[in-house]
Amino acid sequence: MDTLISLRSISKTYHLGKTIVPALQQVSLDVGASELVALSGPSGSGKSTLLNTCGLIDTPDEGEYTLAGESMLSRTSKELTLVRRNKIGFVFQSFNLIPVMTAYENIEYPLMLTGMPETERKKRVNEILEQVDLTQHQHQLPDQLSGGQRQRVAMARALVKQPMLVIADEPTANLDTQTATNIIDLMKELGRRYGTTFLIATHDQRMTERCDRKIILIDGKINTNDIQLSNNAELEMRGNA
């Protein structure tokens, strides 16, 4: 399995007034392509900071970050934006859908950014709408959808451009058990279909159990060795997908 994410000695410190808060301390981590990795740990352990660093929306103070073999930390803000546009999808805890856009338009948005022709966009969006079972709701605005439907739209939006990495911050936190289970299964299925790596910050036991690997962060450090949750055969299969 190829390494998609390689973090080496990543550190990040926040300054809250006179207080210095070390969010990440010398974190090193490798994540393989097509892996479904759960980031777990108590509040303030550095999960979100690690997630944001991997998603290129935050920069560490020191260390080295390589995504798909390319160093990311020496890049300009514009270059990082273009990497996010083409290679990274995001799923947020509160869905963060654009309220004035319909479900269809929300999913179409990342493709519009890439400059994809409309016919191609339409094909892609319709395809993923079917996969997340939202074809019937495609013309509805986010506030006309249930929580689960919204999260499915958010997931479809993250995956429609077929990114190599999806960053998900507590994607099931606002969902009931049944919906959360459905979302997790959907995430696994779509990840398998598109060969996407998922990096998921979560407290949700149901979620971590379904991931390939669980990384526990405490006080900005990876606590123990990774906990391998899935069998290697499945990972191989996902890697080859």
Binding site: I57, T81, L82, N86, F90
Partner: peptide
């Protein structure tokens, strides 16, 4: 503001 953050995270350039 949060919407701006979401758009930026998705790869929307500041000028866009």
């Amino acid at each position: 503001t949060r919407e701006i953050g979401t758009l930026a995270a998705m790869g929307t350039l500041p000028r866009e």
